[in-house]
Amino acid sequence: MTTPILLIDDDERLAEMLTAYLGEAGYAVTAAHTGKAGMALAENGRWALILLDLMLPDADGLDLCRALRGGSAGAVPILMLTARGDAMDRVLGLEIGADDYLAKPFEPRELRARIKAVLRRGRGTEGGLGVLRFGRLEIDRDARQLRVDGDVREVTGYQFDLLVAMAQHSGRVLSREQLLDLVKGEPLDAFDRSIDVHVSRLRAAIEDNPKAPRRIITLRGAGYVFARKQDEEMP
């Protein structure tokens, strides 16, 4: 059984390659080269996923994304493709209803992995707390589950709350006292270093190499930093 994907991209040669490449992975790609044609196909077909380029000759990808969300294909997940790597656009892309975002030129394997991830998640996290994503790490606050590359990693409830608190303040230095304030519950003494023990358990669960952590970083004399950019080549 093949999964139907609609590709809206004006680059015809790339569309051809993507059709072949994704075809081998079991996806049936239909390509549209203009926003208008893409919109018509989206409305009149059944799709598992829409791959949408941000820059189209006749339409702005962001507007199109908004229109798709409002139309009858509103429940189909959208993965945006774009040459713009700006963080601004990245946020914007997700705010207006795209489910994920990939900057050109992308690694073909990464595209395949993202498609898989988006399809697995599907749409409909609305109402819940949602999933915090940092590169390959997913913190699913509804299922209270940690995943790296889709594999579930086991931690205790307190450690999960600690990680959520850190993730919500990603990129900022948090002292042990601040962390204790953020994670209420288990009464801990800031001086007994038990927080360090929890951090090292978390590292064992989510770091590729817990000895050289990339996600939870120690800043000597100050506390911990949960990295904002993880598993990424460029800022």
Binding site: D86, G171, V173, P213, I217, T218, A222
Partner: peptide
């Protein structure tokens, strides 16, 4: 948070990082 940013970038390249918590307004990217 400049200290957080520096700690993150140093970790990425395995460089030693010494920083006091310091915040400034600027373009984070």
């Amino acid at each position: 948070d400049l200290a957080g940013l520096l700690a993150e970038e140093c970790a990425r390249l395995d460089a030693e990082c010494i920083a006091v918590p310091l915040e400034a307004a600027g373009d984070p990217r």
